[in-house]
Write a protein that binds this DNA or RNA. Structure first.
Lengths: 202, 202, 202, 202
DNA sequence: AATGAATGAGTCTTCATTCAT
DNA sequence: CATGAATGAAGACTCATTCAT
């Protein structure tokens, strides 16, 4: 009975943490790191300041948690894309399209990663860069898996070019008026095409 | 005499403004928008708070001015690169290399543009985006000048991919240890190569 | 059986209360009143916040309890010293030495009484002062018991001088480096001597 | 003219600092370190929070300043007392009386030194102790100046006993009802007497 | 025109206390 | 009766901006 009680308590605690995390994701996405205040976040979460600090050491801490969760999501997206494609040459466009579409569907998260997480404390900067580095590393790994299919000067540089191209294209697309802009799918394909042409041999 | 006096006064005023602008560029570059305080900037400039507010409406205002000056510098860089190359096909790599090298040589400015100017007020966000938009427009213009030389889905998307690739590659290069990383010239060439391959026909 | 159960329950309750009181004494002694938090105390006691508030009305309440327990200890020390000495003239140094040695051996308690219980709420201030008043009263009583042996202007003032001398000498001794300072016994004797000379007739 | 302006400005700045210091002394004296808030102090001073932090690094800083000013006052009191008395034997009671009377006339300062400055941060504790140590050192110096006049085990211990006796007697006197208690002068004399008897040879 | 002291709104953060489980 | 998650009032501190000199 004591066990059950504890289990239920912990479940509720985790749920509360999740609620705070989601609220923070929304507020950071809309207002940025400095624009989102702790009272804002807890109001959005229907929680309290004290509760906030029971779950996260401070504001920086929850932002790092948001960023890390996002990093895991993207890692999953890329892994799934890889599985879907056995042809190495097609893996790159598949991954690029998946990533673009995921972020296009979750613009709040995209804003956090691309826009709002720059210029913060060294620790947060570090978390953000490690996400980008990780993705670049995955791209490089794909490139190196089939050297005959690809041709480029330096896999590391190529990976960063690819990641940068995706994010900037997305960022530009996101700020266009949703009524006038091209469809996410079309832009995703174009971006995938751009990078595939940059990489493939011949 | 009254006229001359005014002229001399205005010259001094402009000089003071320039000193403040340079100091602000340094402080924003090192500490970011939120990390750089007005007292910091005026101390760096050897000026005073009161003087600061005589020249700029507020902190946002001077940051916008820094950003705009940077935008003009980059426009000049790209224009010069364009002049140096008569062959349309070679204009792209020439411009990419020039931009990369300029930012690599002025990492403070690069930080401001890429890192520190994200997630700020809508107005500043706007200034920053307009710089990127402007560069993308220039790239698109070059692409459209010789349609037979290039091949791509959408010039606008291509332009943004190019700009994003340059900035992300640069950003990644900047944060590497200066002792271990490759030379700026080599990386600039690799980045130029990446984008040229993505764009050229055939 | 209902009775027995209640008795056992109350015994456990008292035991828990004792554990909390001891933990609080340690935490208050080390961190002071404001530095010791309720979560800290219950962690040290291996108890819980809820349990804490079942035993004590609030933080002030447990501090008062700690202080009162300490007051009782000192009263006992002084009473024992009194019993050991039949000669009224020797009672004063005997009591002074005993008190000094007791506090020197329990520096945590000494800190609470002398240092950490100052400047708190009126109620706590009151508890602390009543302890000192009580000891002064005991001293005064000893002095008045044999007027021929002692000589002084006012027994009340003399008593406070004595108590103040003991505490300040102790406090100064406590903050010296344990490796370099004189032995507790030697200092206790010197302090006892100081006050005996101040009090005795002739 | 620029010089005069600056001088006037600095004078006003110093005046403001003094006003804050006095207000802080009052508030700390009445409410203690933790009970006195920064908003309270600036309200009492007719100043503002920002101004407060332009003059003092933080709350701890202004408390240390208050304590140091108090330390200087007492040092002056003791030095004056020393000058007034050429007879070494009479210097001790003269100093004790002067100190007692000064603190009796400035109970707010006395409270700060004796009661409210205990159990604070290490830095403040240090400032407080250094004041007491300094006074004890002065007393010791007087004792050692004429060894034939005095007799005691250890001048350092004797000095602390004296200081403790004065403060505790004062503290007890201060909390008595002003209508019922003995006059400050009478108590000062009794305390001086107590310590003189404890110290003098024979 | 220049100066820098003064202002105070706005943030983060802590912790005593309550109460549902 | 024990537990510890939740609460929110309260306080220290920062910094953009103003204005008297």
């Amino acid at each position: 009975m004591a066990y059950r009680k504890t289990a239920a308590t912990e479940a509720r605690k985790d749920a509360r943490r999740k609620v705070l995390l989601d609220a923070a994701t929304r507020m950071f996405g809309v207002n940025g790191y400095h624009g989102a205040t702790v009272p804002m976040i807890v109001a959005e979460a229907g929680s309290s300041v004290g509760s906030f600090y029971a779950h996260f050491r401070n504001k920086e801490d929850i932002f790092a948690a948001v960023l890390e969760a996002l990093g895991r999501s993207i890692t999953d997206i890329l892994a799934e894309a890889k599985c879907r494609q056995s042809d190495p040459l097609l893996r790159i466009p598949e991954a690029v399209e998946s990533l673009f579409l995921f972020l296009a569907r979750n613009p709040q998260e995209a804003r956090i990663l691309i826009v709002e997480s720059s210029g913060l404390s060294p620790r947060l900067e570090q978390v953000r860069r490690s996400i980008l580095q990780h993705h670049a590393a995955q791209v490089r790994h794909t490139l190196e898996a089939d050297p005959t299919a690809f041709s480029f000067v330096d896999p590391d540089i190529a990976a960063h070019c690819l990641v940068g191209a995706v994010y900037e294209a997305l960022c530009s697309w996101l700020e266009q008026d949703p009524k006038d802009r091209r469809s996410a799918v079309a832009v995703a394909r174009a971006v995938a095409d751009y990078n595939t042409r940059a990489l493939r041999a011949g």
